[in-house]
Amino acid sequence: MLEEDGGVQTDEAIRAAALAAAQVGVPAADPAVVRVGENGVVLLPNAGVLARVVRGPEAIHHVRRELEVAAWLASQEVPATRPVRPAPVVVGPYVVSFWGYLPDGRAADLVTLAESLRLLHGVPRPVGLLPRLSPFARFGEQLDRGAALGAGDRAFLRERRDRLAAQWEQTTFALGETVLHGDAHMENLLVTVDGRRAFVDLETVCVGPPEWDLTLSALYYECGWFTEHEYATFAETYGYDVRLGSAWPVLRQIRMLRMTLWLAQSAGTDAQRRRQLTHRLSTLRDGSAPAGWTGF
């Protein structure tokens, strides 16, 4: 279910992580890629450190903010990944940050996710640190990277974005505004055998309606990725079922648009993903989405 953009490749992630580690004296022998996507994550096992590699010199401002967000979350006793160094390292076109590694970390279950989101949504909003939620952030960039999309598909997705953006501006939310994770799914909350928890991928942390953080689990349930009991327990644990709110139709459509865009960026060389992309576009057009949507 992880949504990755296909931006950083394995070899460049390893090379950038090793060069950055050498600059700051972090042991970098035997690096292992944890994942590559829009960003690369490389394990440096001898140091017990994860190196996160982001492409683009403009990324340094976002990475610095992510490090500041992690420090602020720690001050609020929110379970989140902790940086090993307070500042990023620039290596050519890459920005590398270093984070603590949970060797036995695994994806959380839905109950743990609901509990942790309640905690996160309950902290006071910091002044000047977090951006506001932007539901269509980087839409154009992601659309351009969708090599598997035809001209008609691109026009369809742009029109859909424009219509949903207008609807978003008129939408009201029952739960007010809080600190959000921004991409709240089980793989972005790690748990360990001794009960430690840590939100990861903190670059999406922002301020907005908490319904945004609840929508992915509800939509994944509609996709058939969770059972009715699992989702009902999630909603009961959090204390709110986002599907019952007036904002749900818009939230649902925006998230499906984003999920389709994500897939488009990685479907160009993968036949299975291209088939799923074609299916997602077809069901968006005929209104049957997300029937038949699969996760990757």
Rank of each mutant, 00 (worst) to 15 (best):
A108D: 06
L120I: 14
S116T: 15
V111D: 03
L67W: 00
R106P: 05
L67Y: 00
E77A: 14
S134V: 13
P88M: 09
L67M: 05
L129Q: 11
V89P: 01
P103V: 12
R118C: 07
P88W: 02
P86H: 10
A80K: 10
L102W: 07
W99E: 08
R106Y: 02
R85P: 05
L119P: 05
Q142A: 06
L67A: 00
Q142E: 01
V90G: 01
R65N: 03
V96Y: 01
V91S: 03
R82S: 09
L67T: 00
V89C: 05
V63L: 06
S116P: 08
W99H: 15
V63A: 04
S116H: 11
R125D: 00
L130T: 06
F136H: 09
V63E: 01
E115W: 08
V96L: 08
R65C: 05
G122H: 10
Y94E: 05
G100T: 14
R106H: 10
R132F: 06
G92D: 04
E115K: 15
P135V: 11
G140M: 11
T112V: 12
V89M: 07
L110H: 03
V91N: 02
Y94K: 12
V127R: 15
H121L: 13
P135C: 09
P79L: 08
E115C: 14
G122L: 14
L113H: 08
E77H: 12
P79I: 09
A108C: 13
P124W: 04
P126I: 12
V63H: 02
L119H: 10
